[in-house]
Simulated scan of single mutants.
Amino acid sequence: MRHLKYVVFQEGKYFVSQCLNVDVSSFGSTIDEAVSNLKEAVALYFENEVGDQHYLHVGDALIGETVINA
Results as ranks from 00 to 15, higher is better:
Met1Trp: 06
Met1Thr: 05
Arg2Ala: 04
Arg2Lys: 12
Arg2His: 08
His3Asn: 12
Leu4Gly: 01
Leu4Pro: 01
Leu4Cys: 07
Leu4Thr: 02
Lys5Asp: 09
Lys5Met: 09
Tyr6Trp: 14
Tyr6Pro: 02
Val7Tyr: 13
Val7Trp: 14
Val8Tyr: 08
Val8Lys: 09
Phe9Gln: 14
Gln10Gly: 12
Gln10Met: 15
Glu11Trp: 15
Glu11Gly: 13
Glu11Val: 15
Gly12Lys: 14
Lys13Phe: 13
Tyr14Trp: 15
Tyr14Thr: 10
Phe15Val: 03
Phe15Ile: 00
Ser17Trp: 02
Leu20Val: 11
Leu20Arg: 08
Asn21Ala: 08
Asn21Ile: 07
Val22Asn: 02
Asp23Asn: 12
Asp23Met: 10
Asp23Ala: 10
Asp23Gln: 11
Asp23Ser: 10
Val24Met: 01
Val24Tyr: 00
Val24Ile: 07
Ser26Gly: 10
Phe27Lys: 11
Phe27Met: 14
Gly28Ser: 11
Gly28Thr: 09
Asp32Pro: 05
Val35Gln: 07
Val35Pro: 01
Val35Leu: 08
Val35Lys: 08
Val35His: 08
Ser36Asp: 09
Ser36Arg: 11
Ser36Thr: 10
Asn37Trp: 06
Asn37Val: 05
Leu38Ala: 04
Leu38Arg: 00
Lys39Gly: 01
Lys39Ala: 02
Glu40Ser: 12
Glu40Gly: 09
Ala41Ile: 06
Val42Ala: 01
Ala43Glu: 14
Ala43His: 12
Tyr45Leu: 07
Phe46Cys: 00
Glu47Trp: 01
Glu47Val: 01
Val50Cys: 02
Gly51Leu: 03
Gly51Trp: 03
Asp52Lys: 00
Gln53Asn: 05
Gln53Phe: 02
His54Ser: 04
His54Leu: 03
Tyr55Leu: 02
Leu56His: 09
Val58Arg: 05
Val58Cys: 06
Gly59Thr: 05
Gly59Glu: 07
Asp60Asn: 12
Leu62Lys: 11
Ile63Lys: 06
Glu65Val: 00
Thr66Ala: 03
Thr66Pro: 03
Thr66Met: 01
Val67Glu: 04
Val67Pro: 00
Ile68Gly: 00
Asn69Phe: 02
Asn69Cys: 07
Ala70Asp: 06
Ala70Val: 08
